Simulated scan of single mutants.
Amino acid sequence: MFANSRTVGSAQTGPHEKLADLVSRHRDAAFRKPLAAYSAAAFDAAIAAWRSAGAAPLIIDAGCGVGESTLRLASQFPDHFVVGIDQSESRIVRGKDWWDGEWPENFVWVRADLVDFWRQLYDAGIRPARHYILYPNPWPKIGQLSRRWHAHAVFPTVVALGGVLECRSNWDIYIEEFALAAEWLSGVSPEVEAWVPKDSAATMTPFERKYLASGHTLHRCVVTLAPR
């Protein structure tokens, strides 16, 4: 039952016709959504942990789910500090018996609203060295465009944070749109490619592993952004 993921189905056959207008509108408008109280506290806790660890170059693992990607990033980049963020406390605190060996020490998990956390990072003048958005919900229906991160009102803030921004998905159109939106906002051309982990042990998240086992083609966008 593990390798049973269905491919993403959508009436879209290419980038959404309204993507450019939506990205442009978000770029030119102030985003004034109030911060959630729990997000503010989570941000303070995450930044305190980062600073107490020496304020090493920062990696943001956005939408970390059960936290596997956070642990893998912390192991892969021992001279960085990783903050894994997810809105679901149950996913973050779920048992980690799937992790072999010792845990790295250069990370923290926090429950927060990603939209709030990104804005707080920007307002605090904190700029990540690397930034991962791994297998977000694709929201593939045509009417769901604004739910995709690259078409959300917060995306100009995400791009303005700078760093090496990487997004992975099993839907090629999501990655194509993500790259277009990032380039429109930054003027930097992203690298878009099919992503093939060398084996299941090299996968970063449970979703990546399941999609790979199900025979899906994986895709990623990587762009090096100048912070603003």
Rank of each mutant, 00 (worst) to 15 (best):
N137F: 13
I142A: 14
R148P: 08
D113N: 06
R127I: 05
D116H: 01
K141V: 10
W139V: 06
P138F: 15
R148W: 15
R111E: 08
P136Y: 10
I133T: 09
A124W: 08
H131Y: 02
R111K: 03
A124L: 12
H152E: 00
D113G: 01
I133P: 04
L134M: 12
W149F: 12
R130H: 08
R130V: 02
R147L: 01
R147K: 15
A151S: 09
I133F: 13
K141F: 12
L121R: 00
L114G: 02
D116M: 03
L114N: 08
H150A: 04
P140H: 03
Y132F: 11
L114K: 03
N137M: 15
L134N: 15
R111A: 00
S146N: 09
S146A: 14
N137G: 11
A112H: 00
Y132W: 13
V110S: 07
G143H: 15
Q120K: 06
Q120T: 05
Q144R: 13
D113E: 08
K141C: 14
H152I: 07
D113V: 06
F117L: 02
V115S: 02
W149G: 02
P138Y: 14
K141N: 09
L121Q: 01
R147C: 04
W139Q: 07
Y135Q: 14
A129I: 10
D116Q: 08
Y135K: 08
Q144P: 05
P128A: 10
Y135R: 10
I126Q: 02
R130L: 04
P138H: 07
D123P: 03
V115W: 01
P128H: 03
D116E: 01
W109A: 01
I133K: 06
W139L: 12
A151V: 02
D123G: 06
V115M: 04
L134D: 02
R111N: 14
W149L: 15
G125M: 06
N137E: 15
A151E: 02
